[in-house]
Design a protein around this nucleic acid. Structure first.
Lengths: 227, 227
DNA sequence: TGTTGTTTTTAGGGTGGTCTAAAAATAACG
DNA sequence: CGTTATTTTTAGACCACCCTAAAAACAACA
């Protein structure tokens, strides 16, 4: 097959770089460094530089030697569309095909690169226009607008506060499976009973009355909406 | 042993070659020529030769210079799995997302290369284990077995014969849209009224009583099951 | 300021895939 | 059979992407 008649303007690889840059820019709020991208993509800095030139050539990023990069408007839109596709496919895999929330990342990573007239919008409609993916991450709409979520890390709650699990900050299989084990799925209700300053761990009570002690690490990576 | 357990690293391109070879071998029943593959893949004969060496290296085809190629057992299994995926995704796109039967080929072409643990089987289950795709082509099961279809080209029927449309031999947008226009979707019932030996065209009556004259070309490319 | 250490870029090369043009093998025909 | 036509393979080059090693630029600090 090689080249289909209308060669995609951006290759899979380029798309992955854009997504990585978007993700990093989100966290740092300033120009993204070559090394940071290399780490995110698990590749060498030299390869990154190589790609940055190509992306700059296509006007998907602003790039000045030694000065880091920022996405252009076009690049940002492309990255947003990619994230939209990724998260919609994750919803599909979990809601329709019955995958667990820790199994879908790699598949969605492939599915997000499928392109074709109207596929995303039809998928969106089919899924009932979800606003969040199975990890609680927001899904931008077709115009690139993001739903806003009022959530905080679990370990910022005070004793007596009640909330609902709305998302996670870490997507590793280990963490997600651990949450499953604890019975802490998305939407689970809980109440914070006590905070232990010594090691920043917290004690909570779940909806079904079980009491759990969670480490600082879990408390940081679990998001809840206070209710 | 270990060799078989290791994921057979095949690239998208290699997979597409295997599928092309499978398709050609199906029709010709003997060794497939380099030129035939080049035509099918819309690429140069030189590129094909290049790829044939790689596929032979991986033991996916039997290849002797100037003698054409045949799939090995392994290659055949891979091609069959690809066709299974392609056709299942086509069912998904039409049945679930509401695409028309002439719009899904290119998308399925991309989706068929997505690989991951259990995806195909879950998709199959989700779709209700369909045996035929939206064009009436059979979908091999997980073990590579094909459903058998008793169908014949429309222009082999005799006056008075009645049948149901079960598939098409040509998948072009033009042909499929023409059929839509004529109201001849998969499952449409019809009766052959008359054959015109002069140009091999035929006259039929549809379920809703309309009478149509179809050219030899349509008669060859439309499959029906006599009832 | 100069020196040292880190980050980034360049240089040069490898692989998988593409191509065209030319050579070699096979097939067809007189 | 030999000659011609067709098919297939080789030769050589290019592109996208990857790498390592070395050079260049930048940052920190005595």
């Amino acid at each position: 097959m090689a080249r289909r008649l209308h060669a995609p303007m951006t290759s899979h690889t380029e798309e992955n770089y854009l997504k990585a840059i978007f993700k990093l820019a989100e966290k740092t709020a300033k120009a993204v460094s070559t090394n940071a991208i290399a780490a995110e993509m698990r590749t060498s800095a030299a390869s990154v530089t190589d790609m940055l030139k190509r992306l700059a050539e296509k006007e998907l990023i602003h790039y000045e030697k030694y000065r880091g990069v920022q996405l252009t408007e076009q690049g940002s839109q492309l990255a947003t569309a990619l994230i939209r596709k990724h998260r919609l496919w994750e919803v599909f895999l979990v809601d329709k095909l019955g995958f667990a929330w820790d199994e879908v990342h790699d598949l969605a990573e492939q599915l997000e690169h499928v392109q074709g007239s109207g596929l995303v919008e039809r998928l969106d409609t089919f899924l009932g226009r979800p606003k969040f993916d199975p990890h609680g991450d927001p899904i931008p709409d077709a115009e690139g607008r993001w739903a806003f979520r009022q959530q905080v890390a679990l370990n910022t709650l005070q004793p007596g506060d009640k909330g609902v699990v709305t998302g996670v900050d870490e997507h590793s299989t280990e963490f997600l499976q651990y949450l499953d084990q604890l019975g802490l799925a998305l939407g689970a209700r809980l109440e914070l009973l006590e905070r232990y300053p010594y090691d920043q761990s917290v004690r909570i009570r779940t909806a079904d009355g079980r009491e759990l002690t969670l480490s600082e690490k879990v408390g940081q990576n679990l998001y809840v909406k206070v209710s």
